[in-house]
């Protein structure tokens, strides 16, 4: 049995706004094993990014606040750590790659200074050691002319190069968990493939666990070991990656998979899931997905289903299977 590196239980992150509290993450449970890549999938606004920000405790500047639940990392509860203890974890043990490589680097510092910052903060290297380390990191992420690039500014580099720099920055202190928040969304397709290839390579070499947040199921198929599907602040399905693609259970997951165009299949129109993610201010009463679900039943509009185990290692939050399971148990 592998060790659980990160375990999140019943995480609730609410945003307190003038118009009332908004549950962005509403009772999320999941875990990541050591060396595992977990894909977190869902539409915009389903709480993927807020979950990752909660883990890093980066919500302090927003009206958002973790109101309940626990986040255990290597057995420590991150929510109870002091800000100082948390700083030692950020960048050193848990690192993050952001979505926008064009704005994630500070325009007034050179590449070397920015990657060196994390190195100096956590590894306590002197100037020369730090510089060598930075050059090695740049070479590792496949940046040519590393010795010259360290003296260049972010605006002199392309988007793909900057994302490599961000990865070098995140990996500089050899973190055990890397949170990648849509790392390839802002890049064009050929660069996307290179960046994913790079992340895979680094994962293999450094045995880093990755929490990969994405809405691109192609990226999930390429990268992940296990997947959780989120909808309206909750996990609706969780399974091994092959299981998700071969045997999706939740109607929402099925809808997502159906909306991917398939090669060699002539289609006039892509399938889509009708409607939008409900706004947190007017959540439906029962199952949050009920208004858009093709297999909706009466019970769905009244009660909310639990996340139940439907097969070994495969969990789903839907009444379709709840009844099935009940029958099996009886």
């Amino acid at each position: 049995m592998k060790e659980k590196l990160l375990e999140i239980t019943n995480l609730k992150t609410y945003f307190f706004t003038d118009t009332g509290q908004v549950p962005a993450v509403n009772g999320v449970d999941f875990y990541i094993h050591e060396g595992e890549t977990l894909g977190v999938v869902g539409e915009s606004g389903c709480g993927k990014s807020v979950t990752s920000l909660s883990v890093m405790r980066l919500l302090t500047d927003t009206p958002g606040k973790v109101v309940d639940g626990s986040i255990r990392f290597k057995g420590k509860d991150l929510l109870s750590l002091s800000e100082k203890e948390m700083r030692k974890i950020r960048g050193n043990e848990i690192a993050m790659i952001f979505q926008e490589p064009m704005t994630s680097l500070n325009p007034v510092y050179t590449i070397g200074e920015q990657i060196g910052e994390a190195v100096k903060l956590h590894l306590k290297y002197n100037k020369k050691e730090a510089k060598n380390h930075v050059i090695n990191m740049l070479k590792l992420v496949g940046i040519p002319r590393a010795e010259e690039i360290i003296n260049e500014y972010p605006h002199q580099l392309s988007g793909g190069m900057r994302q490599r720099i961000m990865i070098a920055m995140a990996m500089a202190c050899n973190p055990t968990l890397l949170i990648a928040d849509e790392p390839t969304t802002a890049l064009d397709v050929t660069i996307q493939a290179q960046i994913l290839e790079l992340m895979k390579k680094l994962k293999k070499e450094k045995a880093t666990s990755i929490m990969l947040i994405t809405h691109d199921l192609g990226v999930v198929a390429e990268m992940c070991d296990r997947v959780i599907v989120m909808y309206a602040g909750k996990v609706v399905e969780e399974a091994e990656v092959t299981e998700i693609f071969d045997n999706p259970k939740h109607p929402y997951t099925k809808g997502l998979l159906n909306s991917i165009p398939k090669l060699g299949q002539k289609m006039d129109r892509l399938d889509s899931i009708p409607g939008n993610v409900p706004t947190p201010a007017n959540m439906p009463k029962g199952c949050k997905f009920a208004p858009r679900c093709s297999q909706v039943m009466d019970i769905c509009k009244e009660n909310e289903p639990d996340l139940i185990q439907v097969e070994d290692g495969h969990k789903c939050r839907c009444f379709l299977y709840q009844n099935e399971m009940a029958r099996v148990v009886n």
């Binding site: 950020r90 690192a95 680097l105 500070n106 994390a118 903060l121 920055m169 995140a170």
Partner: peptide, 8 residues
């Protein structure tokens, strides 16, 4: 945000 996330 990224500077905070590396523990500065």
């Amino acid at each position: 945000e990224s500077a905070i996330s590396i523990g500065a």
